[in-house]
Design a protein around this nucleic acid. Structure first.
Lengths: 196, 196
DNA sequence: CAGCGAGGTTAGCGGTCGTTAACCTGAGGG
DNA sequence: CCCTCAGGTTAACGACCGCTAACCTCGCTG
């Protein structure tokens, strides 16, 4: 785990704030002036760092998709041969992401259609690979599942895990660890019910 | 079941198309001219039927929330005393809604923040009542669940059931009945894993 | 210390969008 | 047979928004 200790660059600040604002009010609902104000500069100063508003969204969505897929591939390689353990590792990774990067998880399935064709195709390809990776693992654990059923089940579990933004704005949920564990149990339970 | 046989009114046509467009491209991403064109009139003609674009969204969101809550109350009253049967009925109702009104389910948890304060408060209150109704039923079936845990579980299952828009744009999913049954089993499995 | 590039600033252009104004039309009723 | 009014039309206004232009100001560096 390579933890970042150096200060975030301006680009990273902008991306983080843009993600938060896009998730809160939607891509078209946020003006460039607001994004600038959120990082202490104003309006057109953003164009020293990004080609345009679209470019920020594109970089966010490609980054998310790539990070999810890369993490899943790594977990697939690192985990032992037991399919159940691999599935647990995938679930754990997705939960970490959903809990730590709520705005990004929100954008991920909400603002995809605002991208240019090229970027959208790339993101969709990464997403598809991620899904297919899950589908293969799930079918190893539950061989009774047909491929379409497994794919539906995977999408549904993503919906379950990505519901974290709807869980209490701040607090009221019983701590990060307990929430992660609850989500994990529910995901396994949902898969088991689908494929048992 | 009072099935509609008469033709839809102009207002209803507009609402239906507006819901579809809002779900596809987001509230701010759709112009009034597009909504008008979708029902064969153009642009400002909409203002003979609605006070403004906001009013359309408000009517849609209030309608959804009200319909969900009303349906749930009815099922609660009609079902027998067995808590498990009540929960099954709630799940069935939510799945019917998610499968038959995909655009509305999408709007329901995506465009809430674009409402005026008064409308947003109303919608949130209806949503909260709906959630609390589920929480009570779930805790009857699984008494081991604390209230916060039950609430988290309910939100997560909503995420699972509301994932239907992500299941194959058209086709590729194994028929409506099979999909409904799969979702139902997964929802029950998720609750069981949370509260067993 | 001159020069320069990175990273800001403000002013303003061009296009889009929600909304209003003014006008038209055809069906129904006294 | 006119009057009304529901339900359209097009033109246009005002606000906003993404983006560019032009300019400024440091901190380096040769």
């Amino acid at each position: 785990m390579a933890t970042r200790t150096d200060a975030p660059t301006r680009r990273e600040q902008i991306l983080k704030e843009a993600a938060r604002l896009f998730a809160e009010r939607g891509f078209h609902g946020v003006g460039v002036d607001e994004i600038g104000a959120a990082v202490g500069i104003s309006g057109p100063g953003l164009y020293r760092h990004f080609a345009g508003k679209d470019a920020m969204l594109a970089e966010l969505l490609v980054g998310i998709s790539d990070q999810l897929l890369t993490g899943a591939k790594r977990r697939l390689a690192e985990a032992g041969p037991a399919p159940g353990a691999v599935l647990d590792s995938l679930i754990e990774g997705h939960i970490d992401f959903a809990l730590d990067d709520r705005p990004l998880i929100t954008l991920h399935d909400r603002e995809l259609d605002r991208l240019r064709d090229a970027d959208r195709k790339l993101v969709r390809q990464l997403q598809r690979q991620y899904v297919e990776l899950w589908v293969a693992v799930v079918r190893e654990v539950y061989p009774a599942l047909t491929e379409p059923a497994a794919r539906s089940a995977v999408h549904s579990v993503f919906g379950l895990l990505n519901s974290t933004p709807h869980l209490g704005r701040r607090g009221s949920l019983p701590g990060r660890g307990a929430t992660a564990e609850l989500l994990h149990r529910m995901a396994r339970g949902a898969f088991a019910a689908a494929g048992g």
